[in-house]
Nucleic acid binder design. Structure first.
Lengths: 248, 248
DNA sequence: GTACGGGTTTGATATGAATCAATCTGGATG
DNA sequence: CATCCAGATTGATTCATATCAAACCCGTAC
């Protein structure tokens, strides 16, 4: 018993990227096998967060980016008026905090949507390392620009698409992300509440609820609480492209 | 005299960051005086674009980022359906193309809104250089995360704010950006058409027009075509905060 | 088991902005 | 100078979604 504790003390914070099952999704995917050690040197095995706990909070000093290891994370910004705007959902292998690399403090709050574990990358060390490993630097640029594109995509969705289109798009996005993680793309459990979906997509909760039931009545999905089954993926894709049909 | 010419010939494509009046806004602001040469080594003085000309086009091979030198640029993405979504406006000193650093091809189209000159930074060389200059690398991270934040801010505006709030926010954003460039913050000429504003803010042109006249009738602004005068900046700020007042 | 409460669903009504339809303006062109 | 045309404005009507209000569902606590 005392020994178990001892062992933990021996390498208390280091995570193993070599052994990590997410290495093909997360930062390791960018770098050579023999450079992995250097990444491991700077990674810290973060602690586990229970549902609802903050991983970091807006306006507190910015120290690290976090890779989701298991669970799910939601990021949001709070306005002066106290309103919340959900800016993203993050699944295992995805990096949270890239939007904060511009300043002294976090630009958003990150919250665990379920029991979640993360790996922590202190920025200073990360920047130092990316200066030495061009591939890693390149990958960081890649991730950040991806994040910009995602956000533009979201803006597009918000400004041009109907409630149904937005929700279909979200379901499909989640679906493909589950698939990349080798989970069922048609049968999954939403990590977030209706409320978060509504906020993220710029809708009222009631509207989200209504669209879910409408889709259900049309036989496109089956939804019971957070459990969702996509019965007709093609139909969903058709919904998202409806705007295109009319527009072009 | 002959000497002045000689100097120009010696570096036909090279831009002078040393002498550039935008050096306190653009990439040079990040780096030491004595490293400026290395930045100059990779910059190419781009050509001048007339109103409406493309600086780069979506889906064509991604080669470079561009700093606006004079004029103004609009970026937009085109959907499969052919719809356009304006994703941003760029003023002198700002870097265009950061959202494309993730892939082989440009993620958006950049178009000159007026007669515009740019400096070109080939990505390969830029990445190489940022690997050597930590300050420059840091600044790139800074710019990209800023871009993410901007985009989140836009998403927020689109999902939570009324037409009036969105337009007030845009006017204030432009105002402060003009100010940073030592131009009047209250008296400027909009580089973009109403149509672009509408598209960017997720509104119909008619709505933009109506809000402009409404603001005008309230004595908050004066607008004649693209010429705009902000008569009551505080009132504009109040408009943007109205949502906060009600929400919190 | 019963009571509680957050999250969700359903229904009725209100509303901001889109859409449709003219009209207007001002700069470019012959 | 008259014509043209894209962009901008104004007005009337429609519509998707917010809002308000109530009921429901289910896991948790007592």
């Amino acid at each position: 018993m005392a020994q178990a504790i001892r062992i933990k003390q021996a390498s208390p914070l280091k995570a193993s990227c070599h052994k990590c099952s997410l290495s093909n999704l997360c930062l390791p995917l960018a770098i050579e096998e023999n450079d992995l050690d250097r990444l491991e040197d700077i990674v810290q095995q973060g602690r586990i967060f229970n549902r609802g706990e903050h991983i970091f909070e807006q306006s507190t000093p910015f120290r690290s980016c976090f890779a989701v290891r298991s669970g799910a994370v939601k990021t949001s910004i709070i306005t002066e008026g106290g309103e919340e705007q959900v800016t993203g959902f993050f699944m295992p292998g995805e990096l949270v905090g890239l939007d904060s690399m511009s300043g002294e403090s976090y630009a958003c709050t990150a919250k665990a949507l379920e029991r979640t574990s993360v790996c922590e990358f202190p920025v200073e060390k990360l920047e130092e390392l990316t200066g030495k490993l061009p591939d890693l630097q390149h990958h960081m640029y890649h991730l950040m620009s991806q994040e910009i594109q995602n956000s533009h995509q979201l803006a597009m969705l918000l400004s041009k698409n109907t409630a149904e289109e937005r929700i279909a798009a979200l379901l499909l996005s989640l679906s493909s992300r589950f698939q990349r993680r080798r989970m069922s793309p048609t049968n999954f459990s939403l990590p977030m509440a209706r409320n978060d979906i509504a906020n993220f997509l710029g809708l009222a909760v009631e509207t989200v609820s209504r669209v879910f039931t409408r889709f259900q009545n049309q036989g496109i999905i089956r939804a019971r609480g957070r459990e969702v089954e996509l019965l007709d993926v093609e139909a969903l894709q058709l919904v998202t492209r409806d705007s295109a049909r009319q527009g072009g």
